[in-house]
């Protein structure tokens, strides 16, 4: 889509990182699931999420509660 710019509507500091995280979040956790092999191991996905959460909550002083 030529108009897709992925510019954060309200760009914050590090908005490029925000966009990459958004992309990662969409691509690995959404989309059509086919009856095929997923090359990403589940363990990898968990690692991604640990990283994603760490970054998004990095300002937070609270420990994550799940």
């Amino acid at each position: 889509m030529s108009t897709a710019s992925h510019v954060s509507h309200r760009p914050a500091a590090g908005s490029r990182d925000v966009t990459l995280l958004e992309l990662l979040d969409r691509l690995v956790d959404n989309g059509v699931v086919l009856h095929g092999d997923i090359t990403l191991a589940v363990a990898d996905i968990d690692l991604i999420y640990v990283g994603l959460r760490a970054i998004i909550s990095s300002v937070s002083s609270l420990e994550e509660r799940r």
Binding site: V28, N30, G31, H35, I38, T39
Partner: peptide, 10 residues
């Protein structure tokens, strides 16, 4: 419809 990243079929 985007397909999930990393999807392969035989």
């Amino acid at each position: 419809l985007p397909v999930r990243f990393g999807t392969t079929v035989a």
